[in-house]
């Protein structure tokens, strides 16, 4: 599903974020990418969704060489992913329902089909009662669950999360962890970049460890 070989990334200005990294994540796997701050976790996720391009090496996602994608093809690559961000990246000018509906609108779903899927996703994360609420009125944990609902509403093959429990207390973090486990159980490939030891203990995933941009354990 995801395969990196000899991937290096050097940012303009000379910082070497990744150095000769290679690993493979199979379809349906639950994998953590861990490491200290600045080890290259976020850069790795950015390479997967073509926010950044590798300086050398190849990044293959479901058979596509991401590093060589034409800009026009990038949106369609990104639709294969569900993205969960540490800072949620919700749109505060629209309500919960419309935030979750966004990926479906982008993909051109019909309003009726979209509404059904949005409610299913909201139900899954326990926010069905809040569909008319504005995101700003939700707590941190609820906002994170909203972000997850938006990430899974179009049923992506891969769920990518960057520090999903970074700002949450232990109880909320455990709920989020359970959500990830349930998605993985229905066949979604889940990749989480985190250094939260509690989450690690909870999910007991495969762990890919980065140290100063190099692969320390896979």
């Amino acid at each position: 599903m995801i395969s990196l070989s000899h991937v290096s990334k050097r940012y303009p200005g000379g910082r070497q974020a990744l150095h000769d990294v290679g690993f493979t994540i199979e379809s349906g796997e639950l994998a953590f990418i861990t490491g200290h701050s600045g080890a290259g976790k976020t850069t790795l996720l950015k390479l997967l969704v073509a926010i950044e391009r590798p300086t050398s090496g190849s990044v293959i996602v479901s058979g596509q060489n991401v590093g060589a994608l034409k800009p026009r093809a990038v949106p369609f690559l990104r639709r294969k992913f569900g993205l969960v961000f540490q800072d949620h990246k919700l749109l505060f000018d629209r309500n919960v329902f419309n935030n979750v509906a966004l990926p479906l609108q982008i993909a051109g779903y019909r309003a009726k089909d979209a509404a059904r899927r949005v409610r299913a996703a909201l139900d899954k994360v326990g926010l069905l009662a809040y569909e008319k609420a504005l995101p700003i009125t939700l707590s941190g944990g609820e906002q994170q669950r909203l972000c997850i609902a938006r990430a899974i509403v179009h049923r992506p093959a891969i769920l990518l999360a960057d520090e999903p429990t970074g700002n949450l207390d232990a109880e909320y973090a455990a709920e989020i962890g359970e959500l990830f486990r349930s998605f993985n159980q229905v066949g979604v490939t889940v990749v989480i970049a985190t250094h939260d030891p509690a989450l690690l203990a909870q999910l007991a995933p495969r762990v890919i460890t980065l140290r100063h941009g190099k692969l320390a354990a896979a």
């Binding site: 690559l77 990246k89 749109l91 000018d93």
Partner: peptide, 16 residues
């Protein structure tokens, strides 16, 4: 700007 960034991340085409 923020909104555009987010919907680009979610896979919106430039046309959209």
């Amino acid at each position: 700007r923020d909104e555009i960034e987010v919907i680009k991340l979610i896979g919106a085409t430039d046309a959209f």
